[in-house]
Design a protein around this nucleic acid. Structure first.
Lengths: 152, 152
DNA sequence: GTCAGTGCAAAAGTTTTGCATACAG
DNA sequence: CTGTATGCAAAACTTTTGCACTGAC
């Protein structure tokens, strides 16, 4: 029996291939490796960190940092990844196919933790209604100092 | 009679001076100009944009980009400004001492409505606590279609 | 007078681009 | 074959740092 996560990844990959094809772009080994690495470490990465991980995991495949940047931009334009950045660290990317969530970000070390809160989403709906808006989306980020940095 | 905004700025300035004094730092003309520019254009700026504005507005005062960066860092550590960034552009700073409010933005006409909701703020505190973060701030923007645009 | 702040320029770090080659379609 | 993608290196940006000098306290 196939594992759930593999099915999930396959769908993601198929979607990526499809988008590439529709835009006359090419599917390459490098692009697959980048997508797979993003998928199998489902977190937030700077392009550089992603690059280093790939270098370590696939030493024979000589991926260049430029390709990582270029591919991330393609992925972002295709809405497969989203980027956010904060504080002193640079831009970070994450897979965008996850169920909705928001972020809490450490102002000191840049660590990002995801959370989801239905009650807040409901309150947002209410606020929109009170102001006669039809809600289409939101952006919410909390800023603070993480546990680790507090103790320093 | 003194204008409200001047009183507000004076308070901000006094607070800044106070923080500087308490930390054995010095109040300089450059620092004042940077704070004033941030205040009088209450929006979000990249360090570079801020630098250019200051160069244009105070051509005689020869402010260096390094000073802008250094001052922004001081201001951020003092919680007078907060920084955040989204999308492709770099880090942006904004004054953080404004009376707190969030925004609902119409995706169609760009109209911005301010709101405040204590219940959401409380929930945010709770979320931070659950993740062992000490909350220092947040950014929340709701996107939607305003009443006016809906009827079109 | 002392010591933090400043401008400048150099350095360090990040992201993009030009180019010749490789390779997917 | 054609034209996009790639790796490399250089270039373009962005941010930080070293240093001698200035200026706030």
């Amino acid at each position: 029996m196939k594992k759930l996560e593999n099915i999930e990844y396959d769908a993601l990959l198929a979607n990526f291939k499809d988008i590439l094809k529709r835009n006359g772009l090419k599917f390459t080994l490098q692009r697959e490796v980048i997508l797979k690495t993003l998928y199998s470490n489902n977190g937030h990465f700077t392009p550089d960190a992603l690059y280093l991980m790939i270098k370590e995991k696939y030493p024979d495949l000589n991926v260049g940092i430029a390709t990582v940047y270029r591919t991330l931009n393609v992925l972002e334009e295709s809405d497969i990844v989203t980027s956010l950045s904060f504080g002193s660290q640079g831009k970070k990317f994450e897979l965008g196919n996850k169920p909705h969530h928001d972020h809490i970000i450490c102002k000191n070390c840049g660590q990002i933790v995801e959370f989801e809160d239905k009650s807040i989403e409901k309150l947002q709906e209410k606020i929109a209604k009170n102001n006669n808006f039809k809600l289409t989306g939101h952006l919410m980020q909390l800023y603070g100092i993480c546990n680790n940095c507090q103790s320093k």
